[in-house]
Design a protein around this nucleic acid. Sequence first.
RNA 1: GGAGAGGUGGCUGAGUGGUUGAAAGCGCUCCCCUGCUAAGGGAGUAAGGGUUAAUAGCCCUUCGAGGGUUCGAAUCCCUCCCUCUCCGCCA
Length: 425
Amino acid sequence: MIDPKSLRTSAKEIAANLARRNFEFDAESYNVLESERKTLQVDVEKLRAERNAGAKAIGRAKAQGDDIAPMLAAAEDLGGKLGDAEAKLQSVQAMITDIELGLPNLLHEDVPVGLDEGDNEECKQWGEPPQFDFIPKDHVDLGEHLEMLDFDSAAKISGSRFSVMRGPLARLHRALIQFMLDIHTTEHGYLETYVPYLVNSDALVGTGQLPKFENDQFKTTGDPPFYLIPTAEVPVTNLVRENITEASELPLRYVAHTPCFRSEAGSYGKDTRGMIRQHQFEKVELVQMVEPDKSSDALEELTGHAEVILERLGLPYRRVILCSGDVGFGSHKTYDLEVWLPGQNAYREISSCSNYLDFQARRMQARWRNPETGNPEFLHTLNGSGVAAGRALIAIMENYQMSDGSISIPSVLKPYMGDFKKISK
RNA sequence: GGAGAGGUGGCUGAGUGGUUGAAAGCGCUCCCCUGCUAAGGGAGUAAGGGUUAAUAGCCCUUCGAGGGUUCGAAUCCCUCCCUCUCCGCCA
């Protein structure tokens, strides 16, 4: 959520910033609603002040044994007027809140203007795509040849966009997760957390998935429903919801491994082959809560932590900054890490690292006590994949494949793979 | 699933219809005393919002959430959520 105060005072600048996303913020209607709200609120508060004064007077009169009947009549009349005014105020306020929750975050000045992912800008490149003296296969062919990746069974059990892994490949997947958690906890200073995979709607409003992206979520049928988390960002970031964190405890750094569930509504026909885009996948997620003036540095740092994983795994990647048309709803600035996939002859997203400023914190009422002011103020939240396990597995399969269809194991994963030197049929 | 207890400020915890936005304690801040890491004394200390030049005043809201009763609700009624204890069941 954008600070409502600045929405009032600098509506034009904000509209201009959001226009870079092709988001139209109707500042004029907002201001009309706002001034209506102001008038109504002043009315309501005046009536409430009268009511309170009247009630106190009645209390005093009663204590002295005076006749209170005429005062009661006046108070009752006032109550009616107050009720009407409150109802009007409430409806205007609800409209304003709807608008505010639907506004995306302001963009950082570095964010290039663009329409879609084609306009993202490369910031750096690491590693060289491997050269093969044979035609490299993609992970689907490799996995099916090994008889360790099985989409047919998954389709029978669940449907499309699910997968089944078996044997050493399943173990490699698990090894990746262990490896990533170990690096982030022992070298990067993150606290490992285990969190719920089903969350309530408030948590999703807090991180920005609701109310706007209801259709992307899986939800249960109960009342109230639970939602399956689309990313660990949701439960982990909400750890600080409604808290006031002492400055001495910042920054908070959390890492969690969770499954992620996405309905992938609207992505029909996109990445239908293989494990790239699934309804369920595993991810190791990094989350930081920091003082506001440190979030910019923290984004660089957090992105670097994700890059370390790819580098240790020896996976070629590049870093791009998302353009205004591709950056997420709540993000102020996002770097994507894209790993090289020989099977697609392309770089594909494997991590997305974002600075949310106080956008999520304001929705969650997540604050810290600023020693300079002594007041609770919204902190800044960041998160990034460190990294997506399913896609990392694909990347290893495709980059580490050999001519006979077997897959060698990156040396950093060997300690996690027991006796396996390579994965072969 | 059954029975019971409870959700109050940064924390602990009083408070069953009228100057209670809320006792007390802890913590924190400032001051005083004390020549020394101890102790004591005093003062202050919730958040959000409106009005305003104002971080001055004044006003409104908030005691789990939402409804209701009432002139007036932390206090009474209803619904829901959550926590704890015991029993049952269960990985």
